[in-house]
Structures are given as structure tokens and as C-alpha cells.
Amino acid sequence: MDIRMPSETGLREQYANLQQRSLLLDALGPSRAGHLSAAMQSSPAGDEASAVHLRVLKEATGEAMPAVKDDHGARPFVETAHSLPESRARPPAFADDTEQWHSEILARLQEVLDRAAEMIAEGEAHLERSRRVQLQDIPWMNSQRHCLNWLSGT
């Protein structure tokens, strides 16, 4: 079975895609976790309905936080993927076979990109599961939003 290595161009495209996905996850994950946390903190105490909504918010926050963690975990892999092509351009003096050196760097780059892709995909999945809870569906969030809109004149 012949394993074909992707081209350097293909790996660079994969890197650019992962970098964009990581940036998006970095922007959305903490924001989502913050909104959910704020919603939990503004929960009215007491009734059973509020307790149910609070539990749902905790579960959603429990999904948003790993999204942030997965993104942070993927960053070293994305950064390494950025630096590997530079290494390919400068083979060490002890490298007898430059073509072999280039192939090994591309293989390492593929491994790093694969691991980053796994972690980013896990983070995206966590974020998506946290989005199942819509803040506009939380009763006390609607009343707070209504009051803020009324105070601001909108």
C-alpha cells in the first residue's frame, strides 16, 4: 500500500483553514462561556422552573468551557505547523539527503495539523452543543433584556 504525502501547498491550505477555525473558536468560545456564566449569575432564586433553567445553563457552560480548553490546547500545534515549513527551507548541515529531510518535515507537519484539527473539531463540537441553549429561551433573561431595552429607549 503506497501512502501518498500531501503536497506542501495542500498542507499550507490545511494550516490556513485550521488557523481560521482556531481564531473563530477563540472568539466565540470565551464569549459564549461568558454569556452563559452571566445568565447563571442573574438567576432568580427559589422556584423549580428557575432551578431547571439553571441546570440547563450549567450544562451549556459545561460544554462551552471545553471548547475554550480545546482551542488553547490546539494553539501549540497550530504554531508548530507555522514554523515547520521554515525548517524545511533550512536543512541541517548533517542532513545527507535533503529530499529525505523535506519528506520528514512534511510528514511531521501532517501529524501536527492532524492533531490540531482533532482538537479544533472537538472544541467546535462542544461549542455547538452549548449553543443548543438559547439565552432568549431563559425567562429571566427576557425580562432583563426587556428592562434594559425600556431604559435605553429601544
Results as ranks from 00 to 15, higher is better:
103 S>N: 15
134 Q>G: 09
90 R>I: 14
74 A>M: 11
95 A>Y: 08
125 A>W: 02
28 L>V: 06
126 H>G: 10
16 A>N: 08
26 D>H: 09
127 L>C: 03
1 M>R: 04
125 A>H: 04
27 A>Y: 14
123 G>Q: 00
145 R>M: 01
124 E>K: 12
125 A>R: 11
59 E>K: 15
120 I>G: 01
130 S>F: 03
86 E>W: 13
132 R>E: 11
130 S>L: 05
71 D>E: 15
126 H>Q: 07
78 V>E: 01
27 A>Q: 15
55 R>C: 03
115 R>T: 08
116 A>L: 09
29 G>M: 11
17 N>K: 04
69 K>Y: 09
114 D>Y: 05
19 Q>E: 14
47 D>E: 14
19 Q>A: 15
73 G>F: 07
103 S>C: 14
128 E>H: 09
12 R>F: 03
106 L>K: 02
42 S>K: 10
96 D>H: 13
33 A>M: 07
57 L>D: 03
138 I>E: 13
89 A>L: 10
49 A>L: 08
58 K>A: 06
34 G>P: 00
71 D>Q: 15
142 N>T: 00
83 S>Y: 13
34 G>Q: 14
88 R>Y: 09
86 E>L: 11
131 R>E: 05
118 E>T: 06
64 A>I: 12
18 L>W: 01
8 E>M: 06
82 H>V: 00
90 R>C: 11
12 R>D: 06
133 V>G: 12
116 A>Y: 06
78 V>H: 10
35 H>Y: 03
143 S>M: 13
29 G>I: 12
152 S>A: 05
22 S>Y: 05
142 N>E: 13
115 R>K: 15
12 R>C: 01
60 A>S: 00
109 L>G: 00
40 M>D: 03
129 R>P: 01
8 E>V: 08
127 L>S: 05
149 N>W: 02
24 L>D: 01
152 S>K: 10
14 Q>N: 01
31 S>V: 00
57 L>N: 04
117 A>N: 06
109 L>W: 03
79 E>N: 09
33 A>T: 05
87 S>A: 13
32 R>S: 08
60 A>L: 04
12 R>W: 01
137 D>A: 12
